[in-house]
Design a protein around this nucleic acid. Structure first.
Lengths: 216, 216
DNA sequence: GAAAACCCGTTACTAGCGGTAACAACAGTC
DNA sequence: GACTGTTGTTACCGCTAGTAACGGGTTTTC
């Protein structure tokens, strides 16, 4: 066989293999949570560790590849909810509900995405690296939402900056509330969605003080 | 010496030792971040591992004790800002600013508090444990803020539930925005505080659509 | 067809982690 | 003096992430 076709075939074969490995890793993470070991993943895929390392470099690489798949999927679902042709409040509620439904349906995946143990922190020399520890998913969602807000909402001067801040803030609100809700299940999903939307809808500003308290 | 006084002295000695160990651990965590090893901590304290384990049980125990100290300190600072005698909006801004100033001043500590690796997950038998992975600090702050809101703000029926939801949501907003800000430093602290307060103050509800977009 | 190049896969290893067992030395109590 | 409890040690276990070195099978090249 001449060069080009052979190389082509090999490349597609490698890609298929890579997909298979990712699916095996997915199964293990779904079963063992975020502390799935490379050994376990290799065993699930029916092979041994060095192959994993040849394909993904290190554990961080595998986890990043895995996270990207799920993040992309979630993000596209959220975009759909965000683009629905209805009123703003309805779209906000739909987006919140989509996110919460996703983490409710596959909590192990969600947990893995949010808590990728410690990876890709290759010794910060000596200067403070300081931040950059939050889950990539959160950052991506925040940036994405910030863009959407900047595109669609009129926030006056400094709109760009404020839109980004709001994007990250709203995503954080959604995430923290969802995480707490997922653990304690203190109420129905509908109620959670409505309460959060109410918060975003300015009910904190409108609410009156309770008697006896000093206000808030 | 009779029994009681001897036991007393030993107890206080043990407590002092414990404090010393925690301070050593603090230094190491401050230097090495959240992945400080038990060996390193023991070395910093001038002793060896088994002593640490006798005092704190396991790594999770040490980390929990360490986290409690910092969490208590941060929480009391936040409570002070939350109890200041001024208008609600001012108090909200002061609280946000207190939190952001704290994480800005000691990012390594903050990082440790928010990202305690994986601890205290003692094999959840077989049922989904599902949640409970978020940092204890976030949970505590959320609960605390929820209580304050429930005490002071009139939210109509279902007030209790909604106050807790808002507590966790607002804390999550603060955390995510703060984390992103700490990494990228896209604006001043004042601006961040004002923007987040604006978000809580209902500006999302009030803002008009931008021309060309389909609203948000 | 033979040889060189290239993967896929293995076994066997390192270094470091959290955690523990077993033992040594010192204190105060009876 | 014997007993008990605490403080400390060394030496180990099982695990992890990651790597070096080697074998066999295909494909390309001469």
């Amino acid at each position: 066989m001449e060069t080009t076709r052979g190389a082509e075939r090999q490349r597609t074969a490698a890609e298929r293999r890579r997909r298979e490995l990712l699916e095996a890793a997915d199964r293990v993470v779904l079963r063992d949570g975020p502390k799935a070991s490379m050994n376990a993943i290799a065993a699930e895929a029916g092979i041994t560790k060095p192959i994993l390392y040849r394909h993904f470099g290190d554990k961080g690489g595998l986890y990043r590849a895995l996270a990207k798949r799920h993040t992309d999927a979630l993000l596209s679902a959220l975009r759909a909810a965000l683009d629905a042709p209805s009123e703003r409040r309805e779209r906000v509620e739909a987006t919140l509900d989509t996110y919460l439904a996703a983490i409710e349906a596959r909590p192990q995946v969600y947990r893995f995405l949010m808590h990728p143990s410690d990876d890709a922190a290759p010794a910060p020399e000596q200067g403070f690296d300081v931040g950059r520890h939050s889950a990539p998913l959160l950052r991506r969602l925040g940036e994405e939402l910030g863009k959407v807000i900047a595109e669609r909402v009129d926030l006056g001067p400094d709109s760009e900056q404020m839109a980004r801040i709001w994007g990250h803030g709203i995503v954080g609100m959604m995430h923290a509330a969802g995480d707490w809700w997922l653990g304690d299940r203190p109420c129905s999903r509908e109620q959670l969605v409505r309460s959060l939307a109410d918060l975003l809808w300015g009910r904190l500003a409108e609410a009156g003080d309770l008697p006896g308290g000093q206000g808030f």
